[in-house]
Simulated scan of single mutants.
Amino acid sequence: MRLRSSAFAIPADHAEPIGGINTTPLIDVLLVLLVMFIITIPMQINEVPVPLPQAGPAPAEQQQPHLLTIAAGGAVMLDGRAVSRAALAGPLAVLRDDPRAALEIKTDQRARYDDFAQTMAVVRQAGISRLRILPNE
């Protein structure tokens, strides 16, 4: 009795096809899917609340935009006047209390992200809710 060389030892005179299904690829795919679910489920559970504006009546008054600029070197300017981040809270509080005021932020393309993040933290602490970030040109 001679054996054919294959993954399974089958006698050479055995002419019937193998009736079993190779389940190894199926198990491999199922294990990959299981790992993907284990990785993605915690990301779906953790959520970051984002306050979205609610639709309401159109504002009767025209808003006055105030421009906050972050330069490439990290310098901050509010309406064309240089302001330090520490002193920015005062003018932002005045803008927060004015119902017609809106803040627009423009950042230089070469500015560091850290400068932007620190400025946004000051804006957030000041309680500015009417905010627009202008795109880089």
Results as ranks from 00 to 15, higher is better:
residue 69 T to I: 08
residue 80 G to F: 08
residue 104 E to F: 14
residue 28 D to R: 14
residue 135 P to W: 11
residue 12 A to L: 13
residue 59 P to V: 09
residue 124 R to H: 14
residue 121 A to R: 10
residue 8 F to H: 15
residue 50 V to K: 13
residue 133 I to Y: 07
residue 11 P to M: 15
residue 103 L to H: 03
residue 14 H to I: 15
residue 101 A to W: 06
residue 133 I to G: 09
residue 55 A to Y: 04
residue 82 A to R: 09
residue 96 R to P: 01
residue 17 P to W: 11
residue 10 I to T: 11
residue 89 A to I: 13
residue 15 A to M: 10
residue 113 Y to P: 04
residue 84 S to G: 15
residue 98 D to S: 07
residue 44 Q to I: 00
residue 60 A to M: 09
residue 107 T to R: 04
residue 46 N to I: 06
residue 87 A to C: 06
residue 59 P to N: 07
residue 15 A to D: 04
residue 15 A to E: 03
residue 127 G to S: 07
residue 84 S to C: 10
residue 137 E to Q: 07
residue 78 L to P: 00
residue 63 Q to F: 14
residue 132 R to W: 10
residue 15 A to V: 15
residue 119 T to N: 01
residue 124 R to T: 10
residue 74 G to W: 06
residue 83 V to E: 03
residue 58 A to R: 00
residue 93 A to N: 06
residue 37 F to H: 11
residue 30 L to P: 02
residue 107 T to P: 00
residue 44 Q to W: 12
residue 137 E to N: 06
residue 4 R to S: 13
residue 37 F to A: 08
residue 63 Q to R: 14
residue 100 R to G: 08
residue 23 T to G: 12
residue 115 D to S: 04
residue 97 D to P: 02
residue 21 I to E: 02
residue 29 V to G: 08
residue 69 T to F: 07
residue 34 L to I: 11
residue 127 G to T: 03
residue 12 A to T: 13
residue 114 D to L: 13
residue 57 P to G: 04
residue 100 R to Q: 12
residue 104 E to S: 11
residue 87 A to S: 13
residue 68 L to G: 00
residue 14 H to C: 14
residue 68 L to E: 00
